[in-house]
Structures are given as C-alpha cells and as structure tokens.
Design a protein around this nucleic acid. Structure first.
Lengths: 132, 132
DNA sequence: CTTTTTGCAAACCCTTTGCAAGACA
DNA sequence: TGTCTTGCAAAGGGTTTGCAAAAAG
C-alpha cells in the first residue's frame, strides 16, 4: 500500500526541497502555509513524519530542539551553533566501527547512532570575538 | 556565591544517587515527592538543572525524549532501547579526534559532541525474538 | 466504495517562568 | 537583612491525536 499522492504531500515535499539549512517542521509549515493557506500544521507534521519514515527525506533529531528535516537522505553528521541555533552538515566519514564496539560494550543490538556536534558557527565567532 | 544548601537540594541530590539507570527529572520528582510531598516539581527541575550546570551531576540529553540525569559526572556515551526506552551506558573510549575533524569540515569552533546509540536492549531482544 | 489523508482544535509531554512567601547566610 | 530558593499554577515549545469531512485509488 504505497502512500497516497495527495496535493499536500507534493507541496510539502517540494517546499522542503526549496528550503535550505535543515528547516524545522514549523519552518516548513510557514513556507507551505504562505503559498497554500489551507494546508494545516498537523498535515505538515504528519507528512514530514511519513516521508522520513519511508526514507524519502531525512530527519535530524536535535538535542533539546525541534527536529529538522533534510531533502538529502544520505546520512551524515550535524553541528549546532550553541549561540544562534543554526544547524549545518559535518561532512566527515561516518564512524564505521563504533556500533560494533557499542554492541560489545552494552549487550544491545545496535541499529544506529546519532552524533551531534556543538560549537560556534563562523558568523557567531565573528560577532562574538570581542567577548573572548 | 556558592549555591545555598537547602533541604530540597540535599534531598534531590541524594535521591538521584539512590536511583539507578538514568532517571528523568520526572522520575526523580516522583521519588522525591513520595518521601517529601511538599517538594514541588519546579524545584526538582530547577535543582537538577543547577546541579548539572555546576558539574555536580550529569545530564544526558536524549533525542526525542526527556533529559536524564546521572550521579556520575565523567562523560561517556549512551544507548537507548528503541522498544522500551531504557537508557544504558556505553563504556567505549571517547572519540578523541572527531571534534577536530568536525571543526575542519564545518568551520565551527567545536566545543563538544553527543553520541547516542539506538538499539534493542537484552531484555527486549529476548521478548521479541519470535517476532524476528 | 473502501481506506487513507486532511483540517481543526484540543491534548500531550517535557520544561520553564512569574510571583509572592519562605529559607538561607 | 538582603538575596537566593521554593511552591504553585500557568505558560511555553514542539508534537501528536480524535474526529468528522474530503479525497485517493
């Protein structure tokens, strides 16, 4: 039973593709709603969830913050700026062997990991230099 | 100005030490409140926050879930069971050089990282075997 | 015609906050 | 005393859900 191809689904997916820098569901909703005022927030949340469940888009879970969505689906890591909240990609090789190490160390059957960096983005570094 | 040594603070810290397996703030509150019904939830949240800010206890931020607190303060990684939500330690060596690699790759000034594993805990593996 | 999806609003979880009363130093 | 902390209840951010109506297949 493939997902139904509704107008909302198309609009949401296209809008996500048009947005850069890992929008939150709310940001996607704002953009969608600006062009299509009849599309509700619950639909955006539900549809983003379905799209990421089926692997069409990516979902980036952020510690202590709203989830972010990504039209790119290959897995990669992210940094979040602790000053402004911006999220960017970190294109380093995926950690290959930690999952096995974690499995051995914990007894869990590991199905994946999330690695999130925290730091200060270039813009905030520039603005905040005088403060140390 | 050191923190004031209130009864609540002592109770909360002791209760956390008595609880195993990374309780959430709410779980700490339940335990605290059972013995000291007058201690309110806001106090538990505030106090756990202060204790972790000052480094007396550890805070584990969980993707899509309540924060968990830990009386152990040395940093280590965690796994979460995707079936039952249980959180356990993963005692593998800390990743030493990823932060520099991430800094180089992103331009951020990296101040740390969070690595969370997802998996199935031994108990759930046993219960769920017949389901594949 | 059956089943999924939508839109709305209300509910939900986790956490923080405003404020006056109370406790600490 | 001066200031930090508490307790309460209300508010907040992010997300999910119940339900009837609408749309997809």
């Amino acid at each position: 039973m493939p997902a139904r191809n509704t107008v909302q689904r198309q609009v949401i997916e296209e809008t996500l593709r048009s947005l850069a820098n890992h929008p939150t569901a709310d940001e996607v909703y704002d953009a969608v709603h600006a062009e299509h005022p009849s599309i509700g927030k619950a639909t955006v949340y539900r549809t983003l969830g379905r799209l990421s469940d089926e692997g069409t888009i990516g979902r980036v879970r952020i510690n202590n913050g709203a989830d972010r969505f990504d039209h790119r689906t290959f897995s990669h890591y992210h940094v979040r700026c602790v000053r402004c909240g911006r999220v960017d990609d970190v294109m380093i090789p995926l950690l290959g062997d930690v999952d096995e190490a974690a499995a051995r160390a914990s007894g869990y059957q590991i199905c994946g990991h999330t690695l999130q960096f925290d730091g200060i983005c270039p813009a905030c570094q520039a603005c905040g230099e005088e403060r140390g």
